[in-house]
């Protein structure tokens, strides 16, 4: 019984951790020159989200990190290239 509960708890924790890891997977973790699907935009700032939307940067769209320069990420979305800072890269979940 005790074991079962521990197991349950442990598994749940493990599951949670896995979920967290998936949730935190954002553009800063992306491999250079790999194309990813955007899973969502995680930000409190509505303006930032709306602005990214107008660039075609929203869930379901494809994004490629071309290179990392200084603290900026050069990304390719909808046939256009942008330099974005870490703050923005963190908000783009992949």
């Amino acid at each position: 019984m005790e074991l079962a509960i521990t197991n349950l708890l442990f598994n749940r924790k493990a599951k949670n951790r896995k979920l967290d890891a998936v949730k935190q997977q954002n553009l800063t973790h992306a491999k250079v020159n790999c194309t990813y699907n955007i899973r969502g935009i995680d930000t409190e700032d509505k303006c930032m989200k709306d602005f990214l939307f107008t660039l075609g940067c929203f869930e379901g769209e494809k994004v490629t990190v071309i290179s990392v320069l200084a603290d900026n990420y050069i990304i390719h979305v909808k046939d256009a290239r942008y330099s974005i800072d870490k703050e923005l890269a963190r908000a783009i979940l992949i």
Binding site: D45, M48, F51, L55, A80, Y82, I84, D85, E87, L88
Partner: peptide, 10 residues
């Protein structure tokens, strides 16, 4: 409190 973000087309 506003967080600024930087995006620029290269």
């Amino acid at each position: 409190p506003v967080r600024s973000f930087f995006i620029m087309e290269l």
